[in-house]
Design a protein around this nucleic acid. Structure first.
Length: 429
RNA sequence: GUGGCUGUAGCUCAAUUGGUUAGAGCACCGGUCUGUGGCACCGGGGGUUGCGGGUUCAAUUCCCGUCAGCCACCCCA
């Protein structure tokens, strides 16, 4: 019988847990800076919560089972349905726009790969009740500020943005039938991974007219909004979408993140529920999977049976971000740290050592000492490797049963001073 | 779920064409050192060579299966 963790699940040793905490602290810090408040929901949900939105095929990627009450339940694979339920239930009572975030552990039963496990932690940030593109800009700026918070720069990470409505209008303009849109989205998604000729063939084989395919690839090849506008500026049906995008970029500049952002119409996002601006964050070297992805999903709350309300959000996993930080040497190492180590040259003084330690701990200090008799040299060594700032040494000849003094040694410079017991306990940290 | 590559100590790696008891560095524990840490030297623990089977006088080495990891699909967080 194997004692290893299940495939795709992680044991968090202290170093790994410190890394996880570092990333999650950055999430909380930045989300708080934008005025978002944290919430959480159950890790186990009714299966229907997920099948209602995404259909039965998603069941193959869920941890599903029947509980003892005969309910079909699933470990949560994403946070959005839970969020939609919670917000939907109290939408009228909540101050709008709702700005909530969460850092759930999510589960998905899939073949694992680098950057993709069966379990991960994910920052979820959502805004409900604000249709204006200003909310889209605010959301992306928050995601980018998380990158800054952990030391990444615009040369490490790029945000690619697109707009489902703009794409939809383009397809209509090129007279591509509604029924072909799913195929077109699938092809766009593969634009930088498969040869263009093969993708064109897939579209024409699927029944899309060759001239429409050509126009589509030209438009999607635009590297900036200006370029796209120049190409299709005369098309009245697109004007509104161009205005929205233009404003979006202006607001991103106002928020100081425009350096990070590029228009990229090949960003589709797999999830069917996105309705407007969508975005992804990638490492510029193209070494890792997407760090983050999100967008506007104005219809989702209504789809899930709640009150209709405009909404948008993103998810950012801890796995890819962690890999990126480690590869860029931006992940802090776990440094052992301790305020005091209490040592003695006489094992008979162990109870005195413990009393001194208890007094120091009572003063809010972190304190360790050797739990078994050890040579003084060994205790100093242990103190050093435990990261102790100071060592309190009880020497048989000085201590004289508690009536005398102790030596306090600062490990960084080796300096020592001799103090009485009551003095020590008044020391600042 | 499909296909490919890879599995030797906690980590990084050795081990002749298949040939004694599978080694080294780092890490860990201890000794030199019962008034003082980081260094040095010495020593110790730790391996069913992922697991199971096969071929062979003999398998870490060759073959098959399986599990795990990585990669590409699929799908997406």
């Amino acid at each position: 019988m194997s004692r290893a963790a299940l495939p795709g699940f992680r044991d968090f040793y202290p170093q790994e847990l410190a890394e996880r905490a570092y990333v999650m602290n950055a999430w909380r810090e930045v989300a708080g800076r934008y005025g978002f408040v944290e919430y959480d929901g159950p890790p186990l949900e009714p299966l229907e919560l997920y099948t209602a939105k995404s259909g039965d095929e998603i069941v193959g990627q869920l941890y599903v089972f029947e509980d003892k009450g005969g309910r079909k339940v699933a470990l949560r694979p994403e946070m959005t349905p839970t969020f939609a339920r919670m917000v939907g239930a109290k939408l009228n009572a909540l101050r709008k726009p709702v700005r909530w975030f969460s850092t759930p552990q999510l589960f998905r039963y899939e073949r694992q790969q680098k950057g993709r496990l069966r379990e991960h932690f994910q920052l979820n940030v959502d805004i409900v009740g604000e249709p204006d593109v200003a909310a889209d800009a605010e959301l992306l700026a928050l995601a980018i500020d998380v990158m800054r918070e952990v030391g990444l720069t615009a040369s490490d990470v790029r945000a690619r943005v697109s707009d489902r409505r703009l794409i939809g209008a383009l397809l209509a303009h090129f007279e591509i039938a509604e029924k072909d849109h799913p195929l077109v989205y699938a092809v766009l998604d593969k634009l930088d991974r498969e040869p263009r000729a093969a993708l064109e063939k897939r579209l024409t084989d699927g029944g899309v007219a060759p001239h429409a395919v050509r126009s589509l690839f030209e438009a999607v090849g635009s590297k900036s909004l200006d370029e796209l506008r120049t190409r299709l500026g005369g098309v009245r049906a697109l004007d509104g979408h161009f205005e929205t995008m233009t404003r979006y970029f202006e607001l991103l500049r106002a928020l100081g993140v425009d350096d990070w952002v590029r228009l990229d119409l090949s960003v589709v996002r797999g999830l069917a529920y996105y309705t407007g601006i969508v975005f992804e964050l990638f490492d510029t070297a193209g070494e890792f999977r997407a760090i983050c992805g999100g967008g506007r999903y104005d219809d989702l709350l209504a789809t899930l049976g709640g009150t209709p309300a405009p909404a948008l959000g993103f998810g950012m996993g801890d796995v890819v971000l962690g890999e990126l930080l480690r590869s860029r040497k931006l992940m802090p190492a776990l440094e052992p740290a301790l305020d005091y180590w209490v040592a003695s040259d006489d094992e008979a003084l162990l109870s005195d050592v413990m009393t001194v330690a208890a007094r120091l701990r009572g003063g809010g200090h972190s304190v360790e000492y050797s739990l078994r008799p050890q040579q003084l040299a060994r205790q100093l060594k242990a103190a050093s490797s435990a990261g102790a700032a100071q060592v309190v040494i009880l020497l048989r000849d000085q201590w004289s049963g508690g009536a005398g003094t102790m030596t306090v040694k600062t490990l960084a410079d080796g300096s020592e001073r001799v103090v009485r017991g009551d003095e020590l306990f008044n020391f600042p940290v």
